[in-house]
Design a binder for these strands. Sequence first.
DNA 1: TTCGTATATGAACACATGTTCATACCTTTG
DNA 2: CAAAGGTATGAACATGTGTTCATATACGAA
Lengths: 98, 98
Amino acid sequence: MSLSKKKLEKAAFILRTIAHPTRLAVIEWLQQHDQLTVNQLVELTGCEQSLLSHHLSNMKLKGLLTAKKSGTNVLYKLKEKQLTQVVRCIEKCDCNMS
Amino acid sequence: MSLSKKKLEKAAFILRTIAHPTRLAVIEWLQQHDQLTVNQLVELTGCEQSLLSHHLSNMKLKGLLTAKKSGTNVLYKLKEKQLTQVVRCIEKCDCNMS
DNA sequence: TTCGTATATGAACACATGTTCATACCTTTG
DNA sequence: CAAAGGTATGAACATGTGTTCATATACGAA
C-alpha cells in the first residue's frame, strides 16, 4: 500500500515549508528554547530582521509556528515538535551537493 | 549547541530534493520494492514518463537514488533508506495548506 | 507627544523549480 | 537492417521562492 495522494501532498507541503537552512535553524532553536523573540532569532541565526520576519510569518501561516505578542516583542514557538526529528532522520544521509 | 551551517545546508538541500509528492511517492515505492523500472514507477505513481524521468535523474544526480541498466530497462534503487522515515516523522503534523 | 526599539509588510527583482513537448538514444526482436 | 519499446534529454515556458529595500505599525519610555 502506498500513501494516499493527499498524504503525499501534505508531506511535500511541510517539507517545502521547512526546506531552508534558516528555517531549519529556527526550528532547532525553538526546540531548545521553547519560545524566542524575533530579535533573539536574528541573533541566533544571523539572518537579517526583515528576511527572518518573512520566514517566520510564512511558517506561522503554514501552521508550523505560533506567535504571541509580549509588549513590543513577539514570541515565536514551535507548534509541531516532531519537526526536529526530520533533521535527525537525514543527518546521516549522503548526497551530492555539487 | 546548534547544528552547523554546513549541516543545515545539507539538510535543507536534501529536503528540497524530496519535497514533491511524486518524488516522495517514488521513495515510498522504492522502499517497498527495492528496485523498480521507470515504467513500473510511471504505473505506480501515475506520473508521465518524461516528467518522471526528470524527477528520477534529478534525485540520482543529487545522490539519493542509484540506477542500473538491465537490457532496455533501467532499475532505480533507493540509496538512502532513511528517507522513508522523514515521511513517517511528519505524517502526524498539522498544517495549513489553504 | 515624541522618540526609540521591535516587528511586519509589500513591491520589485533575481533565481530556482515544475511541466510540457518534441525528439533522441539504446536495446531487443523480427 | 527495420521496427518497437523503454528511457533520457533539452528547450521553452510558467510558476514559485528567496531576498532586498523602503517603509509602516505598535508599543513602551521619557
